[in-house]
């Protein structure tokens, strides 16, 4: 399989240089490298520039409502857990209007990957401040410096209970493909924050800023990138034993505080010690995975209802004498 197998002919109307291109390309690469059959994959998105991604990917694509990508994706996955489900949001989409769903998705640990395109602004509505824009920052179209502080998506994901938490950078394609693949293959709810410069409205956190073009080494003249990889510094995000939870969560929180001169990307946290939602359902409904809601035959060949309510109705019946 090639990335091109996951491409559609739909005209792409993102701004030139948009960080979303990197995310689109890496999704196509990750799906190809994982040899996913396109029809077995459903990608669900919310509203905004990020949400248009699904139209450019040749898998089932569900472009939904502002902030609601997660519950739509959850419904798809729960009704047919045999599908591979990816969910995409912008930061305003996923952390502002959709913030409640962000928290509750963590409580479930359903087996899917949630990606937030994180650029600090509401692009499609012309550059208002989004939930990941820092306090006091004034991007191009703001009348005043940002009066709200930023939410930390990594902290929030950890607090909510995500069992795989990562951050990528949309201009580091190879690294982002690897993160997407890990997130897709993680058994449980994986959250990936992708730093994705908006070239039109965020003139502060630009590609050049992330790349450190403004702080070149005096001798060589080489830029000093702000983004660095956790794995390059020997960071081990994996909770190997349940007893390590506190240590691993704490180090993830510490790393997630870094911003400015050093911005970590990579895997912050990974635990496979929390039962998935699917496993929890199987405690109640043992046949759930083999015969999930979407795949049950509810009618005979002539539409005869196959659900037999006799047992239930007997409990509600007064028999005749």
């Amino acid at each position: 399989m090639k990335p091109a197998d996951f491409a559609t002919e739909v005209h792409n109307d993102w701004c030139p240089g948009c960080g979303d291109f990197g995310i689109l390309r890496t999704i196509q690469m990750a799906l190809a490298e994982l040899r996913m059959e396109p029809h077995r994959v459903t990608i669900v998105s919310g509203i905004g520039c990020s949400a248009k991604t699904i139209h450019y990917v040749k898998t089932y694509g569900v472009h939904t409502l502002h902030g609601r990508a997660l519950p739509y994706a959850t419904g798809v996955k729960l009704a047919n857990p045999q599908l591979k489900v990816l969910c995409l949001s912008g930061d305003g989409d996923g952390l502002g209007i959709g913030g409640g769903h962000f928290v509750n998705a963590g409580r479930r640990n359903l087996d899917m990957l949630y990606v937030i395109h994180d650029n600090g602004v509401y692009g499609l509505t012309k550059g208002q401040a989004a939930p990941t824009l820092k306090l006091g920052v004034q991007t191009k179209s703001l009348a005043h410096p940002n009066i709200n502080d930023a939410v930390n998506p990594i902290w929030l994901a950890l607090a909510a209970g995500a069992t795989w938490v990562g951050r990528g950078y949309s201009y580091d394609i190879k690294h982002l493909v690897s993160l997407l693949k890990q997130g897709i293959e993680h058994k449980g709810y994986a959250f990936l924050d992708v730093l994705q410069p908006c070239p039109t409205y965020n003139d502060i956190n630009t590609k050049e800023w992330y790349g450190g073009e403004d702080r070149k080494e005096t001798n060589s003249g080489r830029p000093l990138p702000r983004v660095y990889k956790l794995e390059d510094e020997g960071f081990d995000p994996v909770v190997h034993e349940p007893s390590e939870l506190e240590k691993k969560a704490t180090q993830a929180l510490e790393k997630a505080l870094e911003w400015g001169d050093r911005i970590p990307i990579g895997v912050f946290f990974k635990s496979e010690h929390v039962p998935t939602f699917e496993e929890r359902i199987m405690q109640r409904v043992p046949t759930y995975m083999d015969n999930p809601p979407a795949l049950q035959a509810i009618a005979g060949p002539n539409g005869e209802p196959r659900t037999d309510l006799t047992r239930l109705i007997q409990r509600m019946t007064f028999k005749g004498a």
Binding site: P71, Y72, A79
Partner: peptide, 21 residues
């Protein structure tokens, strides 16, 4: 679900898979 917005959207997602929702 966490709220009724999630309730209606989740049921819609499930309906797209063919489950009567």
């Amino acid at each position: 679900t966490e709220d009724e917005i999630a309730a209606v959207t989740m049921a819609t997602g499930a309906a797209l898979t063919g489950a009567r929702s």
